[in-house]
């Protein structure tokens, strides 16, 4: 069984743990950088990206997260997590972790009253996935080697770049675990490759 961490500094942490377990993985909350050594993959949950970033810096997570990515370990960012993974942010000089080759715009659908649910198709995952968008970002541009997995109204809302998976919406707020199953498989493949 693969062990998947959920970065537990702020946000919807427990929902991801439930989803990991429902998808056949073991989930743990990662609150300290040294815990990254224990896990095969990492989820950066939805929350407030500015808050999570501040706490990432405060507790010396940044270098460790970059190292985790360099080691080829899978990472999955939802909403705020996608913002943290992106290597380019509209309106900002510097990215956060900056490992995924996508350009992301924050709050790009508007404020909370514009937050919405919509059925979307996720390539290779689901034809009809009920996606919850909350003050959501979207991917403005994806790098050449990035696989676009889902669009909503012509905006990219889910993508995969090598071992990095990101989406604008919150799969953890529904009981549909198909996207989490997809990520758990990515972690299982990466783990078996490392042992091979």
């Amino acid at each position: 069984m693969v062990k998947i961490g959920v970065l537990g500094l702020q946000g919807a942490v427990r929902e991801h743990l439930w989803a990991i377990e429902a998808s056949g993985g073991e989930g743990i909350i990662v609150k300290r950088p040294e815990q990254l050594e224990e896990v095969d993959g990492l989820i950066i949950p939805g929350g407030e990206s500015t808050t999570i970033r501040r706490l990432v810096d405060k507790y010396g997570f940044m270098d460790e997260l970059k190292k985790f990515a360099d080691d080829g370990k899978p990472m999955f960012g939802t909403c705020a997590g996608l913002i943290l993974l992106a290597n380019n942010l509209v309106g900002y000089d510097e990215p956060h972790i900056g490992v995924m080759d996508v350009k992301v715009e924050r709050n790009s659908f508007g404020r909370q009253r514009e937050s919405f649910e919509a059925d979307i198709a996720i390539s290779g995952v689901a034809d009809n996935f009920s996606a919850v968008f909350i003050r959501a970002p979207h991917i403005v541009e994806a790098g050449e080697d990035v696989e676009v997995l889902a669009k909503h109204n012509d905006r990219i809302v889910a993508a995969r770049d090598r071992q990095f998976l990101g989406c604008s919406f919150h799969p953890e707020l529904t009981n549909d675990h198909r996207l989490m199953n997809y990520f758990v498989k990515m972690v299982e493949e990466s783990k078996s490759k490392n042992f091979a």
Partner: peptide, 15 residues
């Protein structure tokens, strides 16, 4: 929707 309204608060947890 309830999911969108309650979900917004879920994202504030631990904060």
């Amino acid at each position: 929707t309830n999911r969108v309204k309650r979900g917004m608060a879920e994202m504030q947890k631990g904060g």
